[in-house]
Amino acid sequence: MAKDVENITIRIAEIMINELKLEDVTPETFDPEIDLVDEVGIDSMDLATVALVVQDEYGIRIDEDDYQKLTTIRFIAEYVQERM
């Protein structure tokens, strides 16, 4: 279970880096606790882009109303894991 979240965390980081073309960071160095909105400048449009790929890949639905809770990669990974 813990390993699942770890794997999902790395994969979400990778999706985020690829989709948003983030520089100077790898899935391994992406701090899963960092506040994506406040610190990285991710907005709801960015989240929607990432959510599309995540939904497809994990076969889940991410409700737009939940975006405000998805403020770190860790939170996104846990959210995905709960719905898988």
Partner: peptide, 8 residues
Amino acid sequence: MKTVSSLL
């Protein structure tokens, strides 16, 4: 990666 705290 550049973050807000690292710049201000």
